[in-house]
Computed example of a mutant assay.
Amino acid sequence: MSHTAHIPSHRKPRRSASKLAVRAGVAGGVLSTLAMAGTASASPAAEPVTETLEMPVLNLDLAAEVSSAVTTAADNTRAAAVNGELQAEEESARTGAAAEAKQAKEAAEKKAKDEADRKAEAERATRNAARTTLQNASASGEMGSGTVTAPATGSAAAIVNFVRAQVGKAYISGATGPSAYDCSGLVQAAYRKAGISLPRVSQDQSAEGTSVSLSALQPGDILYWGSRGSAYHVAIYVGGGKFVGAQNPSTGIVERNLSYDRPTGAVRVL
């Protein structure tokens, strides 16, 4: 056996720093053991022993790994920054869209409210105009018939008192009293109370006497609706802008203002 011992070299790629440290420690231990063995076996007369040791070569490419790690970290940082910017832009876009939608909704609601207010104002104006027209017509009828301010006397008073006493009774077509009347039946009965005979139907009654203006009415005048000689309804003017008539089955005999159902004309028989 040769006095020179050779330790084979095992070279493997470095995988990690911890493995390199272990290998270095093992190599150091081997060298220490060999040194101690050589010292113990050597004698004073023995020849010097020469030992050749081949240390393992540690190839550490740390610079490349560090550079790669730094590059990866930088790339990750840039990616995170870009992702953050994209999220911020998306959030800003959502916020802007929500604000625009809210503004559009408020504008639509305001427009609808303005339109509703305009329509309501127009309806109020129309109602006011109609109310004014009705009031003017009522006032005109009362003023027109107000030429007679004194109470009815004589035959006119008898006629007026009679028809007013029938208010509230029923309207029945063809009836002539005493519990129910139609329009011409009431007029005929009232004039009979004053001793005057009239035709039975409204068409003939509207052709009696002389025509008078609605602005010059007197109590006891016969009012008619339609044309004279072919009227479809008649009643008695009782003064103060009012008349009494058997209107229809739903109302019966009532006293109303001329504005309630303004007549076409009038005749005076008294």
Rank of each mutant, 00 (worst) to 15 (best):
S2E: 13
H3N: 11
A5V: 01
R23M: 10
A24Y: 09
G25Y: 08
G28E: 06
G29S: 09
V30H: 05
L31R: 11
S32W: 09
G38V: 02
A40G: 12
S43W: 05
A45F: 05
P48W: 09
T52S: 10
L58M: 10
T71G: 11
D75V: 12
G84Y: 11
E85D: 13
E91G: 14
E91K: 08
E91V: 12
E91W: 04
A101S: 10
Q103I: 03
K111T: 10
K119C: 09
A122V: 08
A125I: 12
A129R: 15
A150W: 11
A158G: 07
N161S: 15
F162M: 07
R164C: 01
A170R: 14
G174W: 05
A175Q: 00
G177I: 07
Y181N: 01
D182E: 04
V187Q: 00
Q188A: 09
A194M: 02
A194R: 03
I196G: 00
S202A: 12
S202M: 02
S202K: 00
S211R: 10
S211E: 13
L214Y: 02
A216Y: 05
P219W: 06
I222V: 14
G226A: 00
Y232H: 15
A235L: 03
I236L: 10
Y237G: 02
G241S: 04
F243G: 00
Y260C: 01
G265H: 01
G265M: 02
V267N: 09
